[in-house]
Design a protein around this nucleic acid. Structure first.
Length: 561
RNA sequence: AGCCCCGUAGUGUAGUGGUCAACAUAAGAGAUUCUGGAUCUCUUGUCAUCAGUUCGAAUCUGAUCGGGGCUGCCA
Protein backbone atom coordinates (compact mmCIF):
# COMPACT_ATOMS: atom_id res chain seq x y z
CA UNK A 1 0.00 0.00 0.00
CA UNK A 2 2.85 2.29 0.79
CA UNK A 3 4.45 1.79 -2.60
CA UNK A 4 1.11 2.34 -4.29
CA UNK A 5 0.88 5.71 -2.55
CA UNK A 6 4.37 6.55 -3.61
CA UNK A 7 3.88 5.50 -7.20
CA UNK A 8 3.92 8.61 -9.28
CA UNK A 9 4.06 9.49 -12.93
CA UNK A 10 2.93 12.30 -15.18
CA UNK A 11 -0.58 10.85 -15.52
CA UNK A 12 -1.12 10.65 -11.77
CA UNK A 13 0.22 14.18 -11.56
CA UNK A 14 -2.47 15.34 -13.98
CA UNK A 15 -5.07 13.49 -11.91
CA UNK A 16 -3.79 15.00 -8.67
CA UNK A 17 -4.11 18.39 -10.24
CA UNK A 18 -7.61 17.70 -11.54
CA UNK A 19 -8.66 16.63 -8.08
CA UNK A 20 -7.17 19.77 -6.62
CA UNK A 21 -9.02 21.99 -9.09
CA UNK A 22 -12.18 19.89 -8.78
CA UNK A 23 -12.30 19.41 -12.53
CA UNK A 24 -14.51 16.31 -12.35
CA UNK A 25 -15.85 16.89 -8.83
CA UNK A 26 -13.03 14.74 -7.51
CA UNK A 27 -14.14 11.79 -9.57
CA UNK A 28 -11.63 9.39 -11.18
CA UNK A 29 -13.05 7.01 -13.76
CA UNK A 30 -10.83 5.18 -16.25
CA UNK A 31 -11.42 2.41 -18.72
CA UNK A 32 -9.54 -0.40 -20.39
CA UNK A 33 -10.78 -0.58 -24.00
CA UNK A 34 -9.41 -3.64 -25.84
CA UNK A 35 -10.50 -4.52 -29.34
CA UNK A 36 -11.48 -8.21 -29.31
CA UNK A 37 -9.35 -9.13 -32.30
CA UNK A 38 -6.56 -11.04 -30.60
CA UNK A 39 -5.17 -12.12 -27.25
CA UNK A 40 -3.88 -9.71 -24.63
CA UNK A 41 -0.12 -9.36 -24.19
CA UNK A 42 2.23 -7.89 -21.61
CA UNK A 43 1.83 -4.47 -23.22
CA UNK A 44 -1.87 -4.63 -22.45
CA UNK A 45 -0.98 -5.70 -18.93
CA UNK A 46 0.86 -2.40 -18.55
CA UNK A 47 -2.29 -0.56 -19.57
CA UNK A 48 -4.51 -2.73 -17.36
CA UNK A 49 -2.29 -2.12 -14.33
CA UNK A 50 -2.29 1.59 -15.11
CA UNK A 51 -6.05 2.00 -15.57
CA UNK A 52 -7.26 -0.36 -12.86
CA UNK A 53 -4.36 0.71 -10.63
CA UNK A 54 -5.31 4.38 -10.87
CA UNK A 55 -8.94 3.55 -10.13
CA UNK A 56 -7.88 1.64 -6.99
CA UNK A 57 -5.51 4.32 -5.85
CA UNK A 58 -8.00 7.16 -6.14
CA UNK A 59 -11.07 5.24 -5.01
CA UNK A 60 -12.38 5.54 -8.53
CA UNK A 61 -13.74 3.10 -11.08
CA UNK A 62 -12.36 1.37 -14.12
CA UNK A 63 -14.62 -0.01 -16.84
CA UNK A 64 -13.88 -2.92 -19.10
CA UNK A 65 -15.09 -1.91 -22.53
CA UNK A 66 -14.71 -3.88 -25.70
CA UNK A 67 -14.08 -1.61 -28.63
CA UNK A 68 -15.89 -3.75 -31.17
CA UNK A 69 -16.53 -1.32 -34.00
CA UNK A 70 -15.08 -3.46 -36.79
CA UNK A 71 -17.11 -6.66 -37.35
CA UNK A 72 -14.67 -8.11 -39.85
CA UNK A 73 -11.90 -8.66 -37.31
CA UNK A 74 -13.59 -9.39 -34.05
CA UNK A 75 -14.61 -12.62 -32.40
CA UNK A 76 -16.26 -13.86 -29.23
CA UNK A 77 -13.33 -16.18 -28.51
CA UNK A 78 -11.18 -13.13 -27.97
CA UNK A 79 -13.74 -11.51 -25.68
CA UNK A 80 -13.68 -14.51 -23.37
CA UNK A 81 -9.89 -14.79 -23.33
CA UNK A 82 -9.54 -11.12 -22.54
CA UNK A 83 -11.94 -11.35 -19.60
CA UNK A 84 -10.12 -14.41 -18.27
CA UNK A 85 -6.74 -12.74 -18.59
CA UNK A 86 -7.79 -9.58 -16.76
CA UNK A 87 -9.31 -11.58 -13.91
CA UNK A 88 -6.22 -13.78 -13.72
CA UNK A 89 -4.04 -10.69 -13.50
CA UNK A 90 -6.04 -9.75 -10.42
CA UNK A 91 -8.38 -7.00 -11.57
CA UNK A 92 -12.13 -6.69 -11.38
CA UNK A 93 -14.51 -4.52 -13.40
CA UNK A 94 -17.44 -5.59 -11.21
CA UNK A 95 -20.65 -4.97 -13.17
CA UNK A 96 -19.08 -2.47 -15.54
CA UNK A 97 -18.63 -4.62 -18.61
CA UNK A 98 -19.48 -2.63 -21.74
CA UNK A 99 -19.30 -2.98 -25.48
CA UNK A 100 -18.96 -0.21 -28.03
CA UNK A 101 -21.66 -2.09 -29.92
CA UNK A 102 -24.06 -1.35 -27.04
CA UNK A 103 -23.87 2.27 -28.13
CA UNK A 104 -24.38 1.81 -31.87
CA UNK A 105 -27.84 3.39 -31.73
CA UNK A 106 -26.68 6.32 -29.71
CA UNK A 107 -23.68 6.90 -31.94
CA UNK A 108 -25.97 6.84 -34.94
CA UNK A 109 -28.16 9.50 -33.33
CA UNK A 110 -25.08 11.59 -32.60
CA UNK A 111 -24.09 11.31 -36.27
CA UNK A 112 -27.50 12.60 -37.30
CA UNK A 113 -27.02 15.44 -34.85
CA UNK A 114 -23.68 16.27 -36.44
CA UNK A 115 -25.26 16.25 -39.91
CA UNK A 116 -28.02 18.54 -38.68
CA UNK A 117 -25.37 20.92 -37.41
CA UNK A 118 -23.95 21.01 -40.90
CA UNK A 119 -20.77 19.35 -39.67
CA UNK A 120 -20.96 16.06 -41.54
CA UNK A 121 -21.72 14.95 -45.07
CA UNK A 122 -22.10 11.83 -47.15
CA UNK A 123 -19.28 11.44 -49.61
CA UNK A 124 -19.67 9.41 -52.83
CA UNK A 125 -16.01 9.47 -53.79
CA UNK A 126 -14.22 6.17 -54.30
CA UNK A 127 -11.72 5.11 -51.63
CA UNK A 128 -8.96 5.97 -54.09
CA UNK A 129 -10.29 9.47 -54.63
CA UNK A 130 -10.73 10.07 -50.95
CA UNK A 131 -7.17 9.03 -50.37
CA UNK A 132 -5.83 11.10 -53.25
CA UNK A 133 -7.76 14.19 -52.21
CA UNK A 134 -6.55 13.97 -48.64
CA UNK A 135 -3.30 15.62 -49.73
CA UNK A 136 0.09 14.85 -48.23
CA UNK A 137 2.21 15.97 -45.28
CA UNK A 138 3.23 19.06 -47.18
CA UNK A 139 0.26 19.68 -49.47
CA UNK A 140 -3.24 20.57 -48.43
CA UNK A 141 -6.09 18.29 -49.45
CA UNK A 142 -8.91 19.01 -51.88
CA UNK A 143 -12.49 19.33 -50.86
CA UNK A 144 -14.83 16.62 -52.04
CA UNK A 145 -17.32 17.61 -54.77
CA UNK A 146 -20.01 16.20 -52.44
CA UNK A 147 -18.94 18.32 -49.48
CA UNK A 148 -21.66 20.92 -49.81
CA UNK A 149 -24.74 18.76 -50.06
CA UNK A 150 -27.76 20.04 -48.19
CA UNK A 151 -28.48 18.83 -44.71
CA UNK A 152 -31.69 17.16 -45.97
CA UNK A 153 -29.84 15.28 -48.68
CA UNK A 154 -27.16 14.14 -46.23
CA UNK A 155 -29.82 12.98 -43.79
CA UNK A 156 -31.62 10.98 -46.41
CA UNK A 157 -28.44 9.50 -47.88
CA UNK A 158 -27.16 8.50 -44.44
CA UNK A 159 -30.50 6.87 -43.73
CA UNK A 160 -30.19 4.93 -46.98
CA UNK A 161 -26.65 3.88 -46.04
CA UNK A 162 -28.08 2.44 -42.87
CA UNK A 163 -30.85 0.65 -44.74
CA UNK A 164 -28.35 -1.19 -46.87
CA UNK A 165 -29.13 0.41 -50.20
CA UNK A 166 -25.45 0.80 -51.00
CA UNK A 167 -22.57 -1.59 -51.37
CA UNK A 168 -19.44 -1.61 -49.22
CA UNK A 169 -17.24 1.35 -50.01
CA UNK A 170 -19.84 3.12 -52.11
CA UNK A 171 -20.45 5.91 -49.63
CA UNK A 172 -19.10 7.15 -46.32
CA UNK A 173 -20.12 9.73 -43.76
CA UNK A 174 -17.42 12.31 -43.16
CA UNK A 175 -16.96 15.06 -40.63
CA UNK A 176 -16.72 18.49 -42.23
CA UNK A 177 -13.67 20.07 -40.69
CA UNK A 178 -10.82 21.44 -42.79
CA UNK A 179 -9.17 19.86 -45.83
CA UNK A 180 -6.14 22.13 -45.43
CA UNK A 181 -5.47 21.31 -41.79
CA UNK A 182 -1.77 20.53 -41.06
CA UNK A 183 -2.95 17.57 -38.97
CA UNK A 184 -4.14 15.09 -41.56
CA UNK A 185 -6.58 13.53 -39.11
CA UNK A 186 -8.57 16.75 -39.26
CA UNK A 187 -9.03 16.67 -43.04
CA UNK A 188 -12.66 15.57 -43.03
CA UNK A 189 -12.17 12.21 -41.30
CA UNK A 190 -14.51 9.33 -42.11
CA UNK A 191 -16.86 8.56 -39.26
CA UNK A 192 -19.13 5.88 -40.75
CA UNK A 193 -18.40 3.26 -43.35
CA UNK A 194 -20.57 0.63 -45.01
CA UNK A 195 -19.66 -2.94 -44.05
CA UNK A 196 -22.08 -5.70 -44.92
CA UNK A 197 -20.61 -7.99 -42.30
CA UNK A 198 -22.08 -9.88 -39.41
CA UNK A 199 -21.07 -8.50 -36.03
CA UNK A 200 -20.23 -10.86 -33.16
CA UNK A 201 -22.88 -9.24 -30.98
CA UNK A 202 -25.30 -7.27 -33.13
CA UNK A 203 -25.42 -9.82 -35.95
CA UNK A 204 -26.85 -8.29 -39.12
CA UNK A 205 -28.65 -5.39 -37.46
CA UNK A 206 -26.19 -2.92 -38.88
CA UNK A 207 -24.41 -2.52 -42.17
CA UNK A 208 -22.81 0.79 -41.27
CA UNK A 209 -20.19 0.92 -38.53
CA UNK A 210 -18.53 3.86 -36.77
CA UNK A 211 -14.81 4.37 -37.11
CA UNK A 212 -12.49 4.53 -34.11
CA UNK A 213 -12.21 8.29 -34.16
CA UNK A 214 -15.95 8.76 -34.04
CA UNK A 215 -16.67 5.96 -31.61
CA UNK A 216 -14.00 6.22 -28.99
CA UNK A 217 -14.66 9.66 -27.60
CA UNK A 218 -18.39 8.99 -27.61
CA UNK A 219 -17.92 5.76 -25.65
CA UNK A 220 -15.80 7.62 -23.11
CA UNK A 221 -18.32 10.42 -22.94
CA UNK A 222 -21.31 8.12 -22.51
CA UNK A 223 -19.56 6.26 -19.69
CA UNK A 224 -18.53 9.56 -18.03
CA UNK A 225 -14.88 8.61 -18.12
CA UNK A 226 -12.65 11.27 -16.60
CA UNK A 227 -9.23 10.25 -17.89
CA UNK A 228 -9.05 8.38 -21.17
CA UNK A 229 -5.57 6.89 -21.22
CA UNK A 230 -4.18 5.60 -24.49
CA UNK A 231 -0.87 5.14 -26.29
CA UNK A 232 1.26 7.71 -28.07
CA UNK A 233 0.10 7.01 -31.62
CA UNK A 234 -3.24 8.60 -30.74
CA UNK A 235 -1.68 11.92 -29.86
CA UNK A 236 -2.51 13.34 -33.28
CA UNK A 237 -6.09 12.15 -32.86
CA UNK A 238 -6.69 14.13 -29.68
CA UNK A 239 -7.73 17.31 -31.53
CA UNK A 240 -10.37 15.20 -33.27
CA UNK A 241 -11.46 13.55 -30.04
CA UNK A 242 -12.00 17.00 -28.57
CA UNK A 243 -13.59 18.42 -31.72
CA UNK A 244 -16.35 15.80 -31.91
CA UNK A 245 -17.34 16.16 -28.28
CA UNK A 246 -17.28 19.91 -28.55
CA UNK A 247 -19.49 19.97 -31.66
CA UNK A 248 -21.94 17.59 -30.03
CA UNK A 249 -21.80 19.62 -26.83
CA UNK A 250 -21.60 16.56 -24.60
CA UNK A 251 -19.57 15.54 -21.54
CA UNK A 252 -15.83 15.70 -22.25
CA UNK A 253 -13.26 13.35 -20.74
CA UNK A 254 -9.60 14.12 -21.35
CA UNK A 255 -7.35 11.91 -23.41
CA UNK A 256 -3.84 11.33 -22.08
CA UNK A 257 -1.20 9.42 -24.04
CA UNK A 258 1.73 7.38 -22.72
CA UNK A 259 4.44 5.29 -24.39
CA UNK A 260 3.52 1.68 -25.08
CA UNK A 261 5.70 -1.10 -23.75
CA UNK A 262 8.44 -2.54 -25.93
CA UNK A 263 10.22 -5.66 -24.71
CA UNK A 264 13.47 -6.89 -26.19
CA UNK A 265 13.68 -10.15 -28.16
CA UNK A 266 9.94 -10.31 -28.76
CA UNK A 267 7.17 -8.63 -30.73
CA UNK A 268 4.24 -6.80 -29.26
CA UNK A 269 1.92 -6.20 -32.15
CA UNK A 270 -1.30 -8.16 -32.32
CA UNK A 271 -0.91 -8.47 -36.07
CA UNK A 272 2.53 -10.07 -35.73
CA UNK A 273 1.48 -12.30 -32.86
CA UNK A 274 -1.50 -13.47 -34.89
CA UNK A 275 0.82 -14.20 -37.80
CA UNK A 276 3.07 -16.34 -35.60
CA UNK A 277 0.04 -18.24 -34.35
CA UNK A 278 -1.73 -18.63 -37.71
CA UNK A 279 1.41 -19.75 -39.51
CA UNK A 280 2.23 -22.16 -36.69
CA UNK A 281 5.62 -20.73 -35.79
CA UNK A 282 4.36 -21.21 -32.24
CA UNK A 283 1.78 -23.56 -30.76
CA UNK A 284 -1.20 -21.29 -30.28
CA UNK A 285 -1.86 -18.04 -28.46
CA UNK A 286 -0.82 -19.58 -25.15
CA UNK A 287 2.55 -20.81 -26.37
CA UNK A 288 4.90 -20.21 -23.41
CA UNK A 289 7.32 -18.34 -25.67
CA UNK A 290 4.78 -15.65 -26.49
CA UNK A 291 4.46 -12.42 -24.49
CA UNK A 292 0.69 -13.01 -24.35
CA UNK A 293 -0.87 -13.14 -20.89
CA UNK A 294 -2.04 -16.69 -21.65
CA UNK A 295 1.44 -17.67 -22.81
CA UNK A 296 3.12 -16.14 -19.79
CA UNK A 297 0.69 -17.86 -17.48
CA UNK A 298 1.49 -21.20 -19.07
CA UNK A 299 5.18 -20.39 -18.90
CA UNK A 300 4.83 -19.92 -15.13
CA UNK A 301 4.71 -16.19 -14.56
CA UNK A 302 2.65 -15.22 -11.53
CA UNK A 303 0.12 -12.38 -11.67
CA UNK A 304 2.05 -10.45 -9.04
CA UNK A 305 5.32 -10.78 -10.95
CA UNK A 306 3.62 -9.18 -13.94
CA UNK A 307 2.01 -6.50 -11.78
CA UNK A 308 5.33 -5.68 -10.15
CA UNK A 309 7.03 -5.56 -13.52
CA UNK A 310 4.45 -3.11 -14.83
CA UNK A 311 4.81 -0.99 -11.73
CA UNK A 312 8.59 -0.89 -11.90
CA UNK A 313 8.97 -0.01 -15.59
CA UNK A 314 7.07 3.20 -14.95
CA UNK A 315 4.94 5.38 -17.18
CA UNK A 316 6.38 8.02 -19.47
CA UNK A 317 6.09 9.57 -22.90
CA UNK A 318 9.54 8.58 -24.13
CA UNK A 319 9.75 5.52 -26.36
CA UNK A 320 11.85 2.83 -24.77
CA UNK A 321 12.89 -0.79 -25.05
CA UNK A 322 12.77 -2.76 -21.82
CA UNK A 323 15.38 -5.47 -21.40
CA UNK A 324 13.84 -8.94 -21.27
CA UNK A 325 16.14 -9.53 -18.30
CA UNK A 326 14.06 -7.09 -16.31
CA UNK A 327 10.98 -9.26 -16.74
CA UNK A 328 13.02 -12.28 -15.67
CA UNK A 329 14.13 -10.42 -12.59
CA UNK A 330 10.49 -9.69 -11.72
CA UNK A 331 9.49 -13.37 -11.77
CA UNK A 332 12.56 -14.50 -9.87
CA UNK A 333 11.99 -11.84 -7.28
CA UNK A 334 8.39 -12.94 -6.70
CA UNK A 335 8.87 -16.68 -7.00
CA UNK A 336 11.93 -16.69 -4.77
CA UNK A 337 9.69 -15.60 -1.92
CA UNK A 338 6.69 -17.76 -2.74
CA UNK A 339 7.65 -20.87 -4.72
CA UNK A 340 8.04 -24.25 -3.04
CA UNK A 341 11.34 -25.97 -3.70
CA UNK A 342 11.75 -29.44 -5.15
CA UNK A 343 14.54 -31.43 -6.69
CA UNK A 344 14.59 -32.62 -10.25
CA UNK A 345 17.31 -33.70 -12.64
CA UNK A 346 17.14 -32.46 -16.22
CA UNK A 347 19.91 -34.62 -17.70
CA UNK A 348 20.37 -37.61 -15.37
CA UNK A 349 23.72 -39.21 -14.57
CA UNK A 350 23.49 -42.36 -12.46
CA UNK A 351 25.43 -42.47 -9.21
CA UNK A 352 25.97 -45.74 -7.31
CA UNK A 353 26.86 -45.30 -3.66
CA UNK A 354 28.96 -48.40 -3.14
CA UNK A 355 29.00 -48.44 0.66
CA UNK A 356 25.29 -47.75 1.09
CA UNK A 357 23.21 -50.79 2.10
CA UNK A 358 21.54 -52.55 -0.82
CA UNK A 359 17.75 -52.25 -0.81
CA UNK A 360 17.62 -49.61 1.92
CA UNK A 361 15.40 -46.57 1.41
CA UNK A 362 15.36 -43.76 3.93
CA UNK A 363 13.32 -40.58 4.12
CA UNK A 364 15.29 -37.37 4.41
CA UNK A 365 13.81 -34.12 5.58
CA UNK A 366 13.94 -31.13 3.25
CA UNK A 367 12.92 -27.50 3.67
CA UNK A 368 10.14 -26.37 1.34
CA UNK A 369 11.17 -22.75 1.09
CA UNK A 370 14.18 -21.28 2.88
CA UNK A 371 12.70 -17.81 2.38
CA UNK A 372 9.45 -18.72 4.10
CA UNK A 373 9.48 -20.84 7.23
CA UNK A 374 5.72 -21.27 7.16
CA UNK A 375 6.04 -23.35 3.96
CA UNK A 376 7.19 -26.22 6.20
CA UNK A 377 9.14 -29.34 5.42
CA UNK A 378 8.78 -32.51 3.41
CA UNK A 379 10.43 -35.91 3.09
CA UNK A 380 12.36 -37.17 0.11
CA UNK A 381 13.49 -40.76 -0.42
CA UNK A 382 17.17 -41.67 -0.56
CA UNK A 383 18.74 -44.96 -1.69
CA UNK A 384 21.87 -46.61 -3.04
CA UNK A 385 21.30 -45.47 -6.58
CA UNK A 386 20.55 -41.86 -7.34
CA UNK A 387 20.66 -39.46 -10.27
CA UNK A 388 22.58 -36.24 -10.35
CA UNK A 389 22.88 -33.64 -13.09
CA UNK A 390 25.33 -34.51 -15.86
CA UNK A 391 26.71 -30.99 -15.69
CA UNK A 392 27.56 -31.47 -12.01
CA UNK A 393 30.39 -33.83 -12.94
CA UNK A 394 33.55 -32.97 -14.86
CA UNK A 395 36.22 -35.51 -15.61
CA UNK A 396 38.79 -32.76 -16.07
CA UNK A 397 37.45 -29.89 -14.00
CA UNK A 398 38.19 -26.22 -14.62
CA UNK A 399 40.06 -24.45 -11.87
CA UNK A 400 36.92 -22.93 -10.44
CA UNK A 401 34.66 -25.97 -10.87
CA UNK A 402 33.66 -27.02 -7.35
CA UNK A 403 31.38 -29.98 -8.02
CA UNK A 404 31.94 -33.68 -8.63
CA UNK A 405 35.08 -35.12 -10.10
CA UNK A 406 37.13 -38.18 -9.22
CA UNK A 407 38.34 -37.80 -5.63
CA UNK A 408 36.06 -34.84 -4.90
CA UNK A 409 33.62 -34.68 -2.03
CA UNK A 410 30.34 -32.76 -2.35
CA UNK A 411 27.15 -32.50 -0.36
CA UNK A 412 23.90 -33.93 -1.65
CA UNK A 413 21.33 -31.33 -0.70
CA UNK A 414 19.55 -32.40 2.54
CA UNK A 415 21.42 -35.73 2.17
CA UNK A 416 24.94 -36.95 2.75
CA UNK A 417 28.46 -36.01 1.78
CA UNK A 418 29.60 -38.25 -1.06
CA UNK A 419 33.00 -38.72 -2.66
CA UNK A 420 33.47 -39.84 -6.23
CA UNK A 421 35.78 -42.84 -6.43
CA UNK A 422 35.40 -44.15 -9.95
CA UNK A 423 33.59 -43.64 -13.24
CA UNK A 424 32.17 -45.95 -15.91
CA UNK A 425 32.30 -44.90 -19.54
CA UNK A 426 30.52 -46.17 -22.61
CA UNK A 427 31.70 -44.90 -25.99
CA UNK A 428 33.75 -42.22 -24.30
CA UNK A 429 30.72 -40.95 -22.45
CA UNK A 430 30.53 -41.05 -18.65
CA UNK A 431 27.44 -43.12 -17.81
CA UNK A 432 27.84 -44.02 -14.15
CA UNK A 433 29.62 -42.57 -11.15
CA UNK A 434 30.76 -44.70 -8.25
CA UNK A 435 30.82 -42.92 -4.94
CA UNK A 436 31.09 -43.58 -1.24
CA UNK A 437 29.06 -41.77 1.37
CA UNK A 438 29.87 -40.71 4.89
CA UNK A 439 27.08 -42.03 7.18
CA UNK A 440 28.03 -39.39 9.76
CA UNK A 441 26.90 -36.55 7.47
CA UNK A 442 23.21 -37.39 7.32
CA UNK A 443 21.10 -34.27 6.75
CA UNK A 444 24.07 -32.48 5.26
CA UNK A 445 26.19 -31.64 8.31
CA UNK A 446 29.62 -33.06 9.10
CA UNK A 447 30.28 -33.67 12.82
CA UNK A 448 33.94 -32.76 12.34
CA UNK A 449 32.79 -29.50 10.75
CA UNK A 450 34.67 -30.11 7.56
CA UNK A 451 33.56 -28.00 4.64
CA UNK A 452 32.63 -29.06 1.24
CA UNK A 453 32.93 -26.80 -1.79
CA UNK A 454 29.47 -27.34 -3.16
CA UNK A 455 26.03 -28.77 -2.69
CA UNK A 456 24.28 -30.50 -5.55
CA UNK A 457 20.75 -31.69 -6.17
CA UNK A 458 19.73 -35.30 -6.78
CA UNK A 459 16.82 -37.74 -6.88
CA UNK A 460 16.63 -41.36 -5.80
CA UNK A 461 16.73 -43.60 -8.89
CA UNK A 462 13.94 -46.05 -8.03
CA UNK A 463 11.76 -43.55 -6.20
CA UNK A 464 11.95 -40.74 -8.74
CA UNK A 465 9.33 -40.18 -11.38
CA UNK A 466 9.75 -39.42 -15.06
CA UNK A 467 8.88 -36.06 -16.50
CA UNK A 468 9.09 -34.22 -19.77
CA UNK A 469 10.56 -30.80 -19.27
CA UNK A 470 10.30 -27.98 -21.78
CA UNK A 471 13.01 -25.35 -21.89
CA UNK A 472 12.39 -22.00 -23.50
CA UNK A 473 14.65 -19.31 -24.78
CA UNK A 474 13.99 -15.91 -26.34
CA UNK A 475 11.71 -16.11 -29.37
CA UNK A 476 13.92 -13.92 -31.56
CA UNK A 477 17.65 -13.65 -32.07
CA UNK A 478 17.56 -9.86 -32.32
CA UNK A 479 16.81 -7.37 -29.58
CA UNK A 480 14.38 -5.52 -31.84
CA UNK A 481 13.15 -7.96 -34.49
CA UNK A 482 10.92 -5.35 -36.10
CA UNK A 483 13.64 -2.76 -36.41
CA UNK A 484 15.21 -4.17 -39.56
CA UNK A 485 14.39 -2.82 -42.99
CA UNK A 486 15.74 -5.80 -44.87
CA UNK A 487 14.49 -8.67 -42.75
CA UNK A 488 10.99 -9.86 -42.14
CA UNK A 489 10.61 -10.30 -38.39
CA UNK A 490 9.93 -14.00 -38.91
CA UNK A 491 13.37 -14.48 -40.46
CA UNK A 492 14.77 -13.55 -37.07
CA UNK A 493 12.99 -16.26 -35.08
CA UNK A 494 15.30 -18.15 -32.75
CA UNK A 495 15.43 -21.78 -33.94
CA UNK A 496 16.40 -22.89 -30.43
CA UNK A 497 13.59 -21.15 -28.59
CA UNK A 498 12.00 -24.44 -27.50
CA UNK A 499 13.75 -27.62 -26.35
CA UNK A 500 12.10 -30.76 -25.02
CA UNK A 501 13.87 -32.96 -22.50
CA UNK A 502 12.19 -36.34 -22.29
CA UNK A 503 14.20 -38.31 -19.76
CA UNK A 504 14.05 -36.05 -16.75
CA UNK A 505 13.79 -37.50 -13.25
CA UNK A 506 11.96 -35.61 -10.55
CA UNK A 507 11.24 -36.23 -6.88
CA UNK A 508 7.95 -38.06 -6.19
CA UNK A 509 6.35 -35.08 -4.41
CA UNK A 510 5.93 -33.42 -7.81
CA UNK A 511 3.03 -35.76 -8.51
CA UNK A 512 0.95 -33.85 -5.95
CA UNK A 513 1.04 -30.70 -8.05
CA UNK A 514 -1.65 -29.69 -10.50
CA UNK A 515 -1.70 -27.75 -13.75
CA UNK A 516 -0.22 -24.22 -13.60
CA UNK A 517 1.38 -24.80 -10.16
CA UNK A 518 4.66 -22.93 -9.95
CA UNK A 519 7.73 -24.15 -8.08
CA UNK A 520 11.50 -24.10 -8.00
CA UNK A 521 13.77 -26.98 -8.89
CA UNK A 522 16.69 -26.27 -6.61
CA UNK A 523 19.69 -24.83 -8.39
CA UNK A 524 17.93 -24.93 -11.76
CA UNK A 525 15.19 -22.36 -11.91
CA UNK A 526 11.48 -21.81 -11.66
CA UNK A 527 9.08 -24.23 -13.31
CA UNK A 528 5.39 -24.73 -13.83
CA UNK A 529 3.15 -27.74 -14.46
CA UNK A 530 1.90 -27.63 -18.03
CA UNK A 531 -1.88 -28.10 -18.49
CA UNK A 532 -1.23 -30.89 -21.01
CA UNK A 533 -0.01 -33.03 -18.10
CA UNK A 534 -1.90 -36.36 -17.79
CA UNK A 535 -1.92 -39.14 -15.22
CA UNK A 536 0.88 -40.98 -16.95
CA UNK A 537 2.83 -38.06 -18.36
CA UNK A 538 4.02 -35.09 -16.35
CA UNK A 539 4.93 -32.09 -18.49
CA UNK A 540 6.81 -29.22 -16.93
CA UNK A 541 7.70 -25.81 -18.37
CA UNK A 542 10.76 -23.90 -17.30
CA UNK A 543 9.79 -20.29 -16.61
CA UNK A 544 13.28 -18.95 -16.06
CA UNK A 545 16.60 -20.22 -14.78
CA UNK A 546 18.01 -19.09 -11.48
CA UNK A 547 20.61 -16.35 -11.78
CA UNK A 548 23.66 -18.23 -12.83
CA UNK A 549 27.05 -16.91 -11.79
CA UNK A 550 28.62 -20.21 -12.83
CA UNK A 551 27.66 -19.40 -16.42
CA UNK A 552 29.62 -16.18 -16.10
CA UNK A 553 32.66 -17.91 -14.66
CA UNK A 554 32.51 -20.42 -17.47
CA UNK A 555 32.27 -17.64 -20.02
CA UNK A 556 35.23 -15.81 -18.52
CA UNK A 557 37.21 -19.05 -18.54
CA UNK A 558 36.47 -19.62 -22.21
CA UNK A 559 37.32 -16.03 -23.10
CA UNK A 560 40.68 -16.27 -21.34
CA UNK A 561 41.47 -19.35 -23.36
C1' A B 1 9.15 18.28 -46.52
C1' G B 2 4.43 19.83 -42.91
C1' C B 3 2.27 18.79 -38.03
C1' C B 4 2.75 16.44 -33.18
C1' C B 5 5.72 14.04 -29.26
C1' C B 6 10.35 12.77 -26.90
C1' G B 7 16.22 13.12 -25.48
C1' U B 8 18.91 12.04 -17.38
C1' A B 9 24.35 5.82 -15.82
C1' G B 10 24.31 -0.25 -20.38
C1' U B 11 18.63 -0.48 -19.59
C1' G B 12 14.24 1.70 -17.34
C1' U B 13 12.16 5.42 -14.18
C1' A B 14 12.48 9.77 -10.50
C1' G B 15 14.05 14.67 -10.00
C1' U B 16 9.25 20.67 -11.44
C1' G B 17 15.56 27.01 -10.06
C1' G B 18 19.66 26.03 -4.46
C1' U B 19 23.69 20.25 -0.24
C1' C B 20 28.26 14.89 -3.31
C1' A B 21 21.77 14.10 -9.61
C1' A B 22 17.99 9.47 -6.64
C1' C B 23 15.87 4.43 -7.13
C1' A B 24 15.59 -0.27 -9.64
C1' U B 25 17.97 -3.49 -12.85
C1' A B 26 22.41 -5.04 -15.51
C1' A B 27 27.73 -5.41 -15.29
C1' G B 28 32.35 -5.66 -12.19
C1' A B 29 34.65 -6.43 -7.12
C1' G B 30 34.15 -8.31 -2.16
C1' A B 31 31.47 -10.54 2.25
C1' U B 32 28.19 -14.37 3.60
C1' U B 33 25.57 -19.01 2.70
C1' C B 34 23.65 -26.61 2.78
C1' U B 35 20.66 -23.70 -3.88
C1' G B 36 27.56 -21.10 -7.88
C1' G B 37 20.35 -19.07 -5.48
C1' A B 38 18.95 -15.49 -1.80
C1' U B 39 21.13 -11.62 1.33
C1' C B 40 24.80 -7.48 2.36
C1' U B 41 28.71 -3.77 0.89
C1' C B 42 31.38 -1.07 -2.84
C1' U B 43 32.25 0.60 -8.19
C1' U B 44 29.97 2.62 -12.89
C1' G B 45 26.70 9.67 -15.42
C1' U B 46 30.31 15.56 -20.56
C1' C B 47 21.61 15.35 -17.31
C1' A B 48 21.91 15.35 -26.43
C1' U B 49 24.68 20.04 -28.09
C1' C B 50 25.29 25.28 -28.19
C1' A B 51 23.73 29.99 -26.61
C1' G B 52 20.85 32.87 -23.21
C1' U B 53 18.03 34.35 -18.44
C1' U B 54 19.83 33.99 -13.19
C1' C B 55 23.99 34.98 -7.54
C1' G B 56 22.67 29.85 -8.94
C1' A B 57 19.85 25.60 -14.59
C1' A B 58 18.95 18.55 -15.55
C1' U B 59 14.83 21.94 -14.27
C1' C B 60 13.13 28.41 -17.59
C1' U B 61 13.94 30.55 -23.04
C1' G B 62 15.88 30.02 -28.07
C1' A B 63 18.50 27.45 -31.80
C1' U B 64 20.77 22.99 -33.44
C1' C B 65 21.31 17.75 -33.53
C1' G B 66 19.17 12.91 -32.66
C1' G B 67 14.88 9.40 -32.01
C1' G B 68 9.57 8.28 -32.67
C1' G B 69 4.48 8.97 -34.65
C1' C B 70 0.99 10.70 -38.59
C1' U B 71 -0.81 10.42 -45.83
C1' G B 72 -6.59 2.74 -43.63
C1' C B 73 -13.51 3.16 -45.24
C1' C B 74 -7.63 -0.48 -38.78
C1' A B 75 -7.51 0.48 -33.67
Amino acid sequence: MDNIEKQNDFIREIINNDIKTNKYNGRVHTRFPPEPNGYLHIGHAKSICLNFGIADQYNGLCNLRFDDTNPSKEETEYVESIKDNIRWLGFDWNDRLYFASDYFNQMYEYAIDLIKKGKAYVDDQTPEDISRNRGTFTEAGNESPFRNRSIEENLSLFEQMKQGIFKDGEKVLRAKIDMTHPNINMRDPIIYRILHASHHRTGDTWCIYPTYDWAHGLEDSIEKITHSICTLEFENHRPLYDWFLEQLDVYRPQQIEFARLNLSYTVMSKRMLKELVDEKHVNGWDDPRLPTISGMRRRGFSPSSIQNFCKKIGIAKANSLIDYGFLEHSVRDDLNKTALRFMGVLRPLKVVIDNYPEGQVEELEAINNPEDESAGKRNIPFSKEIYVEQTDFMEEPYKKFYRLSIGREVRLRYGYFITCTDIVKENDKVVTLHCTYDPETKGGYAPDNRKVKSTIHWVSADQSIDAEIHLYDRLFTEEDPTGHDFYDFKDLLNPDSHKVLKDCKVEPNISNLKAFDRFQFERLGYFCIDPDTTNNQIIINRTVTLRDSWKKIQKQFKEKK
